[in-house]
Amino acid sequence: MFEIDTAGFFRDLEEFLAAQTPATPLSPIDRAARVLPQEWRRTDAFWRFGGVNVTSAEIAKFLTGVLHILERDGWHQGFYQDYRTGARCIRGALIDAEKAGYGDFDASCVAQRVLDLLMRSAPGVRSEAIEGWNDAAGRTSAEVQALVRDGIEFARLYGPPPNATDGVGR
């Protein structure tokens, strides 16, 4: 099985982003696409979990479920779910999307990778985990929902088509 050195990847990502000075600001999706290692675009390592390919449609469906949960039940910070209001943090919405049948564990794990890539490719982000990003002072529901929407679009643009075995995405 292919092992992903996430610590090394994100260290390299920070160095790469620090060296970039684009003439015009990049969209979150374009920023993430620029830092997704070329070898991950040529193979399905980024889009695979547990030996199973997860397609762009499956990732987009899963993240659409995450977005639906956040829009329907509300968003909050601090812990997975506020049991008084039903609001969830982004991690709680990821957990509940799987429980609600928007996708399986494999889709959940790859969707998490997509969100992590988008989050960590943003300028000035220092969080190592999505929970830290979610709980950052000043974070808003609109920003969290925008990250999920960008994840849906990123998966549709760069994720593997059905039955992909190599050369996935753009």
Rank of each mutant, 00 (worst) to 15 (best):
L94K: 14
L94Q: 13
D96T: 09
E98W: 00
E98M: 13
E98S: 07
K99W: 06
A100M: 02
G101C: 11
G103H: 07
G103K: 08
D104T: 11
D104F: 14
D104L: 14
F105L: 14
F105V: 08
F105D: 12
F105H: 15
A107W: 10
A107D: 14
S108Q: 13
V110I: 12
A111T: 08
A111H: 07
V114T: 03
L115T: 02
D116V: 03
L117P: 00
R120F: 07
R120K: 14
S121I: 01
S121L: 03
S121R: 03
A122F: 00
A122N: 08
A122D: 08
P123R: 14
G124I: 12
G124Q: 12
E128I: 01
A129C: 00
A129E: 07
I130A: 01
W133P: 02
N134V: 05
N134T: 08
N134P: 02
D135W: 07
A136G: 04
A136R: 13
A137E: 13
G138C: 04
G138I: 02
R139F: 03
T140Y: 08
T140M: 06
S141M: 05
A142C: 03
A142F: 01
E143I: 06
E143P: 03
E143Y: 07
E143W: 07
Q145D: 04
Q145G: 00
Q145A: 02
A146V: 00
A146L: 08
A146S: 03
